[in-house]
């Protein structure tokens, strides 16, 4: 993405003259074959490049299609009801407990992941010497690469028992445990994107500030951070999107009780957790099955909106500094 905005001439400006149809008028079919032989590449690659759009289209189409029957059955109001009891009699498919659960763990996770991530980004971009910078960036990349099932396993085996003892709870699988694990998972995303944002601020800003007698810290706080603001917002939003969509780690440590609560010390079920937990136990084509796809629609919409917003904010920073 970033490479697309580089200033040097782009490859497409080299070669590729406008289509010359003279061979057809001069040599008929043989000329046409020549043209096809020489000019097949652009349209073929164009079609192949559309694969990601096709994939996105498939996702949108099928998730909405499979969610549609339940919307017809219980309506949009029913979907946002406060009770989730798909196996009860009568069954109820209110997604509110999971929406609140997802929001709770995500917000709590971001409360510590954003400050830590921004601070780490400031250290890497502004303070650390070259070698430390490289090491820190590699560590963040490794942390981002740890599979979510490993985070979940770690949370279940190490963090949850520790919290259970520390807070005297009946179970360590709570919203708090999920938040801590999610926060650690969101940290590398937020830190590396925030670092990109800080690096995008032109050096002349820093030089001007230092020339006025500000210390490096004052410069970071009063000049670099405000100048990178929209990029930092973008980083935080993208971190949020990732945290909401995270499945395995949350599934393993959040406790999965579909209740509406604002307490971090209680078990909660998230949107992702509900899908992962219940899809295996439901009959294909049942109302419950379609209701789980409706949760998928909610997730997908949140993910696409946060992603779009984050891109917009990040792009705004890039446009502002002319890169």
């Amino acid at each position: 993405m970033r490479s697309g905005r580089s200033r040097r001439p782009r490859a497409e400006t080299v070669g590729g003259a406008p289509l010359d149809l003279r061979p057809v008028t001069q040599a008929g079919l043989r000329g046409l074959i020549t043209i096809v032989k020489e000019r097949w590449d652009r349209p073929v690659f164009l079609v192949l490049a559309s694969v990601s759009l096709v994939a996105l289209g498939l996702i949108l189409f099928f998730i909405f299609r499979e969610a549609f029957p339940v919307l017809r059955e219980i309506g949009l109001g029913g979907l946002f009801g406060a009770r989730w009891n798909p196996t009860g009699n009568p069954a109820s498919y209110g997604a509110l407990p999971m929406i609140v659960g997802s929001a709770l763990v995500t917000i709590a996770a971001l409360l510590f992941a954003i400050p830590l991530g921004f601070a780490a980004a400031a250290f890497i971009a502004e303070v650390a010497p070259r070698w430390m910078k490289d090491v820190a960036k590699s560590v963040l990349e490794l942390l981002a690469g740890v599979p979510s099932v490993i985070y979940g396993f770690f949370g279940l085996m190490v963090v949850a028992p520790a919290f259970q003892r520390a807070f005297g709870l009946s179970t360590g699988r709570t919203a708090l445990t999920a938040s801590v694990i999610l926060g650690i998972m969101a940290l590398p995303t937020i830190a590396s994107l925030a670092e990109d944002a800080l690096t995008a601020v032109p050096n002349s800003y820093r030089e001007a500030s230092m020339a006025l007698g500000a210390t490096r810290w004052q410069t970071i706080r009063r000049v670099t951070f405000p100048a990178a603001f929209s990029g930092l917002i973008g980083a935080a939003i993208l971190g949020m999107g990732r945290a909401i969509g995270e499945t395995m780690a949350v599934l393993m440590v959040a406790g999965n009780a579909p209740q509406i609560t604002a307490s971090l010390l209680k078990p909660v079920r998230t949107l992702t957790g509900a899908i992962a937990l219940e899809m295996g136990e439901t009959a294909m084509g049942s109302t419950h099955y379609h209701a789980l796809f409706a949760l998928g629609v909610i997730l997908l919409v949140i993910a696409l909106v946060t992603n779009g917003l984050a891109e917009w904010f990040r792009g705004r920073l890039a446009r502002k500094h002319g890169r």
Binding site: M1, G4, S50, S52, L53, A55, L56, L58, I59, F62, I63, R65, E66, S148, L238, G241, R242, I244, G245, E246, T247, T272, I275, A276, M279, L292, F293, G296, L299, L300, A303, L304, T306, N307, G308, E311
Partner: peptide
């Protein structure tokens, strides 16, 4: 580009739902 970026942001469980459907 929007397609690529959006695809990268789709939660992995939603890919699972697509695969299933």
């Amino acid at each position: 580009r929007v397609g690529v970026n959006s695809l990268a942001g789709v939660p992995s469980i939603v890919f699972g739902l697509l695969g299933l459907a």
